[in-house]
Simulated scan of single mutants.
Amino acid sequence: MKRIFVIIVVLFFLSCDKDKAVNNNQYLQNISFSKEINTNLPQYNSLKFPGNSMVITDAGAGIQGIIVVAAGTNDYRAWEASCPNQYPTACSRLTLDGGYAKCSCENSKYSIYIGNGENGEQYSLKQYRTEILGDVIRVYN
């Protein structure tokens, strides 16, 4: 009986997907998308340099757009460009303010490097996956 229990526990832990980010947020829906960002193009060239970031609002990139951060050499982070603690509205698109994403509706700030809010907000920034394909950064969910 103990062997069966141990096997079940081991199978449970092996079946967990470590790459899958937990993005449960009552305000922001989980949508599927894929956006390829070619850093050789002039509008995205600044992402080749660590410390730079930008908001991309192209159709099909997130809910209200995505924030892409060059956190280091070949280290990119991507976040939803909507305030995470309210439903998407006209004023809930985040803007960049140094190393922070700022929500003008609720006057809150979130780190674009780790996603956490400054004042212990209920939800952190909604993170998306990134993949580096040479000079192309693929952001997807």
Rank of each mutant, 00 (worst) to 15 (best):
N107D: 05
Y27F: 15
R77G: 07
K48L: 08
I67H: 02
C103Q: 13
N45V: 10
E106H: 04
F13Q: 02
V22M: 07
S53I: 12
R129H: 11
N38W: 13
S15C: 07
Y110P: 02
N45D: 14
N141Y: 02
M1K: 10
N85S: 07
N23W: 05
N74P: 11
A21Y: 13
D75W: 04
A59E: 15
Y113C: 03
Y76D: 05
T57K: 14
Q86Y: 03
F12L: 11
T89G: 13
L14C: 08
Q29V: 07
Y140E: 02
F12W: 04
V10L: 15
I132R: 14
G62S: 04
Q43G: 08
Y44M: 09
Y140T: 08
Q43H: 03
C16L: 07
T89A: 04
K35N: 04
E131V: 04
Y27K: 11
C83I: 07
I112P: 01
Q43S: 15
I37E: 03
Q29E: 15
K126H: 02
I31F: 02
I56S: 05
S34A: 13
E36I: 03
T130H: 10
Y76N: 04
A78T: 08
C16D: 00
L47M: 09
I7Q: 00
Y110H: 12
D58I: 11
E36N: 15
I67V: 15
T73C: 08
Y110T: 12
A81W: 12
N107G: 13
F33E: 05
I37R: 05
Y123C: 10
A71R: 14
R3V: 10
D19I: 02
V55K: 00
C105N: 06
G98L: 14
S32T: 02
I7T: 06
S82Y: 00
S32E: 08
E106L: 05
A61H: 12
I66Y: 09
R93L: 13
A101T: 04
G115V: 04
N107P: 03
S82M: 00
D75K: 09
G120N: 15
A81P: 08
G134Y: 07
Y140Q: 01
D58V: 11
T130D: 07
S15I: 08
I63Q: 07
E118Q: 12
R77W: 14
F12S: 03
I7F: 01
L133D: 01
Q26D: 10
I56E: 00
D75A: 13
D97T: 11
P42I: 15
K2N: 06
M1Y: 09
I112A: 06
Y113V: 09
Q43R: 07
A101G: 02
S53M: 11
V68G: 02
L41P: 07
A59H: 00
R3L: 00
A90R: 14
I8P: 00
Q122R: 12
V55C: 04
M1L: 12
K18A: 10
R138K: 11
Y27V: 05
S124W: 03
I137V: 08
V55S: 04
C91P: 04
A90D: 10
